[in-house]
């Protein structure tokens, strides 16, 4: 099935289906070696290295989480210092107002709280979620991507997209489908 100019313009990409994670990884390596640049893989389980093979970059999430944790620690300490020393000083058993040792526990808990919320929401936001609609859902077979099938998509913005469908058929795919925009 050759692509006409008309359908190519309306396509998000072409999708190939595989039976195993191994087949997907092999196909992804070949695709990248062929010089395709706009590629994405979909799998029902996390596959180590797949992201490195296709995207070459690692996420900034750990740095964001560190920043979140430090913000939490500073917030916790500042809150307690301000409340106990400046806004509402109270003599508790003759201890100094700014007895930092007693501030450790809430500061620590807020460190964990802020980092955990950054980790969860950071993952969701960086992944572009929530996003109920995405062109890949237009392919009927894609509902198997969360069960036991593996998919590779070459997007239409790829400069070599014209050769994509023919190439994917050579990679051992069980099927190759057009992904409507």
């Amino acid at each position: 099935m050759a692509h006409t100019v008309e359908t190519t313009n309306a396509l998000h990409g072409v999708m190939a289906e595989y039976d195993s994670g191994q087949a997907l990884v092999d196909a992804a390596k070949k695709t990248m070696a062929q010089g395709f640049t706009r590629v994405e893989a979909y799998s029902p389980v996390p596959i180590e290295d797949l992201n490195t093979i296709i995207h070459k970059t690692r996420t900034v999430l750990p740095k964001l989480i560190l920043a979140g944790g430090l913000t939490g620690m500073a917030t916790g300490f500042a809150l307690q210092y301000w409340a106990s020393v400046i806004e509402y000083p109270m003599n508790i058993g003759g201890r100094p107002l700014a007895s930092w040792t007693t501030f450790i526990v809430p500061s620590y808990e807020l460190t964990i709280l802020f980092s955990a919320l950054t980790a969860a929401f950071g993952m969701i936001v960086l992944n572009g979620l929530p996003r109920p609609y995405h062109p890949v859902f237009n392919v009927e077979r894609f509902s198997m991507a969360s069960s036991d099938k593996f998919f590779l998509v070459i997007e239409s913005e790829d400069p070599q997209f014209g050769a994509a469908a023919a190439f994917l058929r050579e990679t051992g795919a069980k099927g190759v489908y057009d992904v409507a925009e």
């Binding site: 799998s43 995207h55 999430l61 980790a119 960086l126 992944n127």
Partner: peptide, 19 residues
């Protein structure tokens, strides 16, 4: 939330879960 299980999704997901 529209989870698609893409390689990028899983990568960030694994990092977030481990942390």
């Amino acid at each position: 939330l529209g989870w698609r299980g893409s390689a990028r999704h899983w990568h960030r997901y694994e990092v977030a879960s481990l942390i």
